[in-house]
Simulated scan of single mutants.
Amino acid sequence: MRVSENRLKWIMRLYPPMLFQRIWVVKFEPGFRGVTVRVKKSFLNKNYNKSIFGGTIFSAADPFYPVLFHQIFSNKGYRIIVWLKACDIRYIKPARTTLSFTIQLSDNDITEAENNLNRIGKNVKAYPIEMIDENGILCASLLSEVYMRNLDYVDNKQTAAV
């Protein structure tokens, strides 16, 4: 689904699993080159220790690299599947206040992915996310492994062998 940055921001803000966990998309950068997200602490996502549930923190990070890459490559005309293949999360400090994080994709990230999609039909790479609380303290660090598949890729080596 190709949409504008503003429309996708509102779709994700109002999507119930994110809304009820108080995961709020602040903004998407032009061309889907980045996103800023806030996780507001509330009674809906507070655990026994009065900090934000680890599951909420993980849920906040889960969709954004795949969404960014999907939008970028869909807008370039690719038919593509993108999903989070794996994620390594480290809870460093309890999240006792609202968390935020920003993801930025560089030209190099996009070029590397596009080269792999055209050359071998897929791209798999891990990208970092750091979640910071209102006091500037790092509370969680994630490494998100993103899988991308170019649905229009044809392996010329296999077709030549037939």
Rank of each mutant, 00 (worst) to 15 (best):
Y147T: 06
S144M: 13
R149K: 15
Q21I: 04
S59A: 13
E134G: 03
L151W: 04
D155L: 09
F101L: 06
G121S: 02
K85G: 12
Y127D: 02
V67T: 11
M148I: 07
G136D: 08
N6K: 14
R90T: 05
S51E: 10
N123R: 05
Y91Q: 08
T159Q: 10
N108C: 01
N123I: 01
K41A: 08
F58D: 08
K76A: 04
L44K: 14
L99K: 02
M148T: 10
D107W: 03
N150K: 09
R149F: 06
K40H: 04
R149Q: 14
F73N: 07
S42C: 06
V26E: 00
I81P: 04
P30K: 08
Q104P: 10
S59N: 11
Y127I: 03
N156M: 13
C87M: 14
L44P: 10
N6I: 15
G31K: 10
Q158W: 10
I11W: 07
V146S: 11
L142A: 10
N116D: 10
P30V: 07
S51M: 08
G136K: 12
E5S: 06
I103W: 01
K157V: 12
N49Q: 12
A161Y: 10
L117Q: 04
G77V: 12
R22H: 10
I129F: 00
P66E: 05
I103D: 00
Y78A: 05
G54W: 07
V39E: 03
Q71K: 04
W24G: 00
T56Y: 00
I72C: 05
S106E: 01
E145I: 14
M12L: 15
N75K: 13
Y91S: 04
D88V: 14
M12T: 03
R13F: 00
N156P: 13
W10L: 09
V26N: 01
I129C: 02
K50N: 13
I103F: 03
V25Q: 01
W24T: 06
N123P: 07
Y147R: 09
G77P: 15
K125H: 11
P66H: 07
V146I: 15
L14M: 13
V67L: 15
V25E: 00
L44R: 14
G55F: 11
L142C: 11
D109T: 06
L84V: 11
I81T: 09
W83P: 14
R33N: 06
T98I: 04
L44Y: 05
V82M: 10
M18R: 00
R22M: 02
M1H: 07
V146T: 15
I23Y: 01
A61M: 13
G55L: 08
K76I: 10
L8G: 08
I81D: 12
I120M: 01
K93N: 11
W83S: 05
T159R: 11
R13L: 00
T97K: 00
I132D: 03
E145T: 15
F101G: 07
N45L: 00
G54E: 11
L142G: 05
S100M: 02
R7T: 14
G55I: 12
R119I: 08
S144H: 08
V154A: 03
T102H: 05
R33E: 05
K41L: 11
V26T: 00
T102Y: 01
D109A: 04
N135G: 10
